[in-house]
Structures are given as C-alpha cells and as structure tokens.
Design a protein around this nucleic acid. Structure first.
Lengths: 347, 347
DNA sequence: CCACCTAGTGTATGCGCTTACAGACAGCGC
DNA sequence: GCGCTGTCTGTAAGCGCATACACTAGGTGG
C-alpha cells in the first residue's frame, strides 16, 4: 500500500537516501554509474518523489495558483462563454508558461464556500498566485500577499504592492472608435456599456469618449445604453437605441457578446449592417469571426495575459524585493465586415 | 521572512501546536474559548496552514490532477477551439466537483518535455488524477496507477484496472442518423470521419453504420471522406463529396468543427442547406447555435464528464479496493435547422 | 612522501504539520 | 471517598525529502 520512498530506492540501489535525492535534484553531482543504478531501482519500484515532502524540505511547492471567477453556473450556457473563454484562455497561457518555468498550475474558481476556503485551498499550496479580476476579497489578498507573490490580472489595483497586469482597454477603444470616425466617416456613434462597476468597460468608454473628443464630436458623459455583457443584454440595448429619436450610425459595444446580440436585433429589424449601421465589439472571441456580418473588434491577448502573469510571478519569486510592477498589454484591432471594412478571406 | 507556523500561533495563543492543528482539522474537539483564541492569534499573525506539511503528515494532498492534451499552440486559433473547449469544459466540471468535495485541482497539459516531466509534475502532488484522452503514455499510466487512483476520460481502455469514463458516441450517432432517415426521409447519407485513430470518431462511424443497417440501407465499410476534425478539413471533405458521381442527401460529420467547415463549402457552391443537403455534426459546441443554418448535432455533456470523473476518483479514494468502474454518459440530440428541422427560437 | 585538493557519497537534522497516546481535570454514581 | 467517565489539552513521534556537513578515496603538486 504505502508508496515507495527514497528509503526503498536507496536500499535497493545500495546507496544512501541522500544520493537518491541527489539523483533527482542535482544529477550531475552523482557518478553516472550510481545514477543509473538508482534510476533503475526507482523504475522497478515505481518510485515517484513526493511533492509534499519535497516541498516541505525545500520550502517551495513548485506550484503556481490561479483564482478566477466561477461563472460556470450549470444554468448558463452560451452567454457566459465569453467569460469562461476569458478565463480559459488565460488559464491556458498560464499553464504553458508555468510548465516552461518548471511549475505546475493549481486552479481555483471562487465564490461558493466563501473566500476563506478559497484562500485556504490555494495559499499554503503554491509558491505564488494570480488573481483574475475581482475574484478574491481585498482583505484576503492583503493577507496572502504578505506570504507570497500575488499578481492581479485585469482587476482593480487596490493593493499597490502587488504586481499588476492589464490590457490596453482605453487605447484599444480609442483606436477602434477613431477608425470608425476617420476611415468610415461616421459621426453619430453610440456606446453600449457593460456592468456598471466593470473597470474594463469604464476604460473602454473612456477610450470612446477620447476618440470623439479628438474628432471634435460631441462627447457624451454617459454611455448611450447599458448591457450586462451578455448577448441578451446586447439585443436589448440595440433595441432601445433603435427606438431613440435620431438613430446612431454606429454602435460601439463594450464587448463582443453584446455586439453579437446587437447584430441579431438589427437583422431582425431589417437594419443593414454595415450599410445602415456599423457595429463593433471588444474582446476578439472566436464567435466574432463566424457571425454574419463578421464582427470588427479589438482582440485581447488572453493567452499572453496568462503567460505574462507567470513571468511576473517567477521574476518576483527570484527577487522578492523587486519593486512592484504594473504592465499593460497591447491589444490588436481586428477589422472585419461589421464596421464597413471588406470581409477578410476565410483563411 | 519565514511565514508563521503552528509554533508561532501556539505560542501566541498559549496552547500547544496540537491544539492549533486541531482547530483546523477538528474544530469540534476544541473548546470554543480556546478555539477563538487560536483563530485570533492566527489571524493576527497572518497564519495559513502549509499544504505541504499537512499533506506530508496526513499523507494526502487534497489535490486532484487533470492531464489534458496541449493543443494550445500559439499558431492555432479558432480551429482548435473545439478541442480546447472540450478540455476547458471538462476542466471546469472537474474544478467544481473537486471543490465540492474539498479538493483543489491541478492541471497539466501534456506534450513538450516528454511524459516523464508530466508524470513527475503531477504525480506525487495529487491524491489522484484524471487523464483526458490519450494524453499520457501507457507505461506511465501503468506506473502511476499503482500509486494512486487514475480515471481515464474518453480514452482507450488499455489498462483495465482503471476507472473509465466515456460518452455514448455510438448511440448518439445512431440516434441522429436514424433521425435523418426516419424523420427526414433521407436515404443517401455520407459520413465524414475524423482522425484515423480517434476512437471517438470510430465509435461514431459505428453508430452511423448501425443506423443504416437498421434502416436496410446499404452499409459502407469505410467513411465516405475523412477530415482532421478542423473546419478546414470539413471544407475539404465536403468539396470532395460534392465532386463524386451521385451526391449524398446528407453529410454526417464526425464533429461540429468539420460540419461547420462543410457548411461553408456548401454555401459557396450554392448548395442549399437543408433543402438540397442536410448537415449534422457532433459535440454541441456553442458555434453550432450561431452559424446559419444553425447546426443540428449531438451534444456532449462536457461538464458532467468532468464532474463524474471527480466523483469516480473520490469514490475510489474512499474505497481503494472497489472494483474498477466504467461509465458511459448519455448524450443529447440538438435539432436545429441544418437537418431540416425548424430553427429553434433565439432564447 | 605529505599536505591538499576534488569528486562522490553518507550521516544527521529539520521542514510544519497530523495524530496516536497520555495526562489533567471536572462531574458522576456508588 | 473512590473509581470512573468524558472532555479537553499536551507530548512526542514521525511523514519523505533536501541539504549542510563530515567523510573517503583517489589524484596533484611540491
């Protein structure tokens, strides 16, 4: 029953446990002949080093953690796919980068069970972790960051000694809006915001405003409509915008899901896109490539977000006293048909 | 620098380390007053139990692992979304179930670095793990399964003492094909297979054959075309099928991505779907709901797959001598427009 | 030929926790 | 009053490994 340990291997290979350990930690310090004997014994016994013991002795776990929001309610399905995708792609990026650095990745969705259990389930098991958005209560973050490196991804920068990572929401929306104005000659643009408190949506709106200002167009102080980041929200917002007195020439949605919902409403109302109405989103989800007309959007570097998060953690692990860093990742513009640009080839 | 330990807390709370430990493991065995004192001290010190030490002492890590294929090549983008989605949804399901059972989830994509590193990075860190598809080399599986519970998800059952989990590929394809024949009166059906060695695709083809046989239609011994599970593969396969002498009335694709590629080809060639050609897929990816015509398919219970995997692991952890189990999860049919059924309402 | 290194290995300690086991102390019935 | 029970807490022995340090054997240069 009991799994084989260094002792078993040492005995079988006629060496001491220290040598067995060295074979795994610093193979170059062990004579080749001895090393082979140990590895043979290990293989024969089915020995695998215990991560626990190793971690305890070397006071490091070799594991990085990621806390992300648990949108994955069984009821929800497609409308949450942006959010899960968001998390999934970041997870993937982190996993790759972590592995490259020799770490494994522990993931933990939040909510349910309270933050207490989240913190407990992650902290003490990892060497450092990343927090996606506002997943973890501030006080817990405070607590944890006293113990180990924490990097905040796309979340509020409430704790200023944490490393921090975000995407250029504002710049991206500025550039995209400017594209509509400058390249397509549009003047009446409506902005559909997301959740009230989403810093992402706020930054995007700011970029939108900035673009109007730069073009000497009237700058609204509030978004023209508000959705909740879902397709349904986008459908509804588009409906309301169509019912206003003077219709806009373009709808700028704070994310792709809403934009796609907006396209549905427009199609049903017989409004031609992009001829009568330009539509753009934000995020760059795969769906945007498939809907008709295909969606012009700002593509976020999700995977790089995850990779960079790991890089920051690894850096800090190497140098705990390094100054906290804040990085902003650039976004790219994806011009497709819904803004009036030509449909890109099918690849 | 050193993080606070039980000793620090014990000293501050004027108790022994055993009591501190008990406060966390078996709170009910500690007098309330003592417990509060300990918790207060812990909070003040910022104490969090070390997972390593805990695991070592109690010989269990409280962590479950998941190994999945690393499709996430930076080059690939949308065409791999089915596969990543597959893995992501299962991951999500596992994460939820694991948390429900009090476990955390460690994930590890394979490839790159060889199986050695995969095994090493996961085993010895977890109490058990799930393997998605043919992610792990058989010999490593053999090795690992001697040490801890392993459940194989949707992979070959090469090792018969492992718990095993799959979806009803054959039944699902049988039912869907039968729907085309019985409800839509189609007689000439073509099957587009996936990768040569995919057991999933094979089972689906078997279901397809079975349906033809049941309807007294000629049963092909080989798929009519073969793709590689990508949209591009589907486009190409559809093209070849159209160039054959007698065209089929329906194309049955082994997965949704290929089916969507097929739709593209058909649209470009002016073949009306479903009037001139029915198209069905398999998987139930979100894209299928959005493409026009919307895709009829067999929906896999991805998330439940993950949840069930965890259930199996937890069961086996509780009773290591239990007989190995093999479960087959049912699939559901999703009838949309591409087979000739009416377009479902937009939700 | 001896002091001195170097490469390779062994010994012993401790990482921070869990958990038998033992002890202390109060309440209880006889 | 005594033993007994039950409740609460402390003592101590590891869990499986990493690693500082000690040690050995074989060079090396003087």
């Amino acid at each position: 029953m009991g799994a084989p340990t260094v002792y078993d291997v040492a005995e079988k290979a006629n060496v001491s446990i220290a040598t067995v350990s060295r074979v795994y930690r610093n193979p170059e310090t062990v004579r080749e002949q001895t090393r082979d004997r140990v590895l043979a014994a290990a293989r024969e016994l089915g020995y695998v080093p215990s991560g626990n013991a190793r971690g305890l002795a070397s006071r490091s776990t070799g594991v990085l953690g990621l806390c992300f929001p648990d949108y994955a309610d069984p009821e929800l399905e497609d409308d949450d796919s942006e959010q899960t995708l968001y998390a999934d792609e970041i997870t993937r990026g982190m996993e790759r980068a972590a592995r490259r650095h020799g770490y494994a990745l522990l993931i933990a969705a939040s909510l349910e069970g309270g933050p207490e259990s989240l913190v407990a389930s992650v902290a003490g098991r990892v060497d450092g972790f990343a927090v996606l958005a506002r997943t973890v209560a501030t006080e817990d973050l405070e607590l944890m960051s006293r113990r180990l490196p924490v990097v905040m991804i796309a979340g509020p920068r409430e704790i200023d000694h944490l490393d921090h990572l975000e995407v250029a929401n504002r710049d991206g929306e500025f550039a995209l809006t400017t594209h509509l104005i400058a390249d397509h000659g549009l003047r009446r643009l409506a902005f559909v915001a997301g959740g009230e408190d989403s810093p992402d949506a706020q930054a995007r709106f700011a970029g939108f405003q900035q673009a109007l200002r730069a073009a000497d167009l009237p700058v609204p102080s509030e978004p023209d409509a508000r959705g909740d980041f879902t397709q349904a929200g986008g459908r509804e917002a588009a409906r309301r915008l169509l019912e206003r007195g003077t219709q806009p020439q373009a709808m700028v949605f704070a994310n792709d899901q809403m934009a796609i919902g907006g396209l549905e409403t427009l199609e049903r109302r017989g409004v031609r896109v992009p001829a009568d109405m330009a539509v753009v989103g934000f995020d760059g989800i795969p769906l945007g490539r498939v809907v008709r007309p295909s969606l012009t959007t700002v593509t976020q570097p999700m995977r790089r977000l995850g990779e960079t998060a790991v890089d920051l953690l690894v850096e800090r692990l190497a140098d705990p006293d390094r100054e906290p860093r804040s990085e902003m990742l650039p976004v790219t513009q994806t011009r497709r048909a819904s803004c009036g640009c030509p449909e890109p080839p099918p690849r």
